[in-house]
Write a protein that binds this DNA or RNA. Sequence first.
DNA 1: CATGACACTTACCTTTTTGTGCGTACTTAC
DNA 2: GTAAGTACGCACAAAAAGGTAAGTGTCATG
Lengths: 136, 136
Amino acid sequence: MSESKAVSLAEQMRRGELFSTQCPSREILKHVTSQWGVLVLVALMGGTHRFSELRRKVGGVSEKMLAQTLQYLERDGFVCRVSFPVVPPHVEYSLTPLGRDIGLKVEALADWIESNLPSIMSVQATADQEVAEQQA
Amino acid sequence: MSESKAVSLAEQMRRGELFSTQCPSREILKHVTSQWGVLVLVALMGGTHRFSELRRKVGGVSEKMLAQTLQYLERDGFVCRVSFPVVPPHVEYSLTPLGRDIGLKVEALADWIESNLPSIMSVQATADQEVAEQQA
DNA sequence: CATGACACTTACCTTTTTGTGCGTACTTAC
DNA sequence: GTAAGTACGCACAAAAAGGTAAGTGTCATG
């Protein structure tokens, strides 16, 4: 009892307020780890992109969601939007230094999953099989 | 035109199919980067926890969401569930080796955000101010 | 001279996610 | 003897996320 409490407390110190409901980090985390946030960040790690380039690259994203995601990320200071006042419109999106920094972490996570996908899927298959056997 | 296409293609090779709609990685990513997935993973990096320990630690999570999150993570092979057939029920959750591995990445992301929260919030404030000025 | 590209925005609707409250089977504490 | 803790599952409702379709204004292409 005392040991688990001690661990909790020690961690609570180290990791600030992420576990607290009102922690502002949670909002940032939501933007960054949102379905499209992750993909956009990873895509922009490959360099500057225009809006429709991103739309084509990130499979399945709607214009609305892409626009919204980019706005969140811009407001959080991860994405830099440069619009050229020409016609037809030309807008370029790139990562800020802050964005590149967090992009590295997100990319690392994404890469890890892609690399370990075979392991994960075989574990899933085993788990599903056991569930099926229990029901049989 | 050719340059941006070249970059896209080169990346598409390196990063497999994350950008494709049907990529199974996307599902895993959803579980791991879900609001509660992140917090649970980080919490379990601190060691084994019981269900209600987690519930108390991860502020704001409902029992239903915690249960669901744990089930996803267990099925993906990140979390290990051990239930003791005693009364009252006693269940322990811990990370598998796979879970500890991905937990490191998630923790790194969370830690980065917490550390850089001041920078982010000051950027936000500046952005908000500029928007306000434009509207005035 | 009609179409499509560009970078969005808005309105509307559907789907998904999330929360709430209740029930369980049993025990310990008050 | 009543309340609380344990680890959930289930049904219902609310909230949020997401998709679809259309419109904007101008230009290049067919």
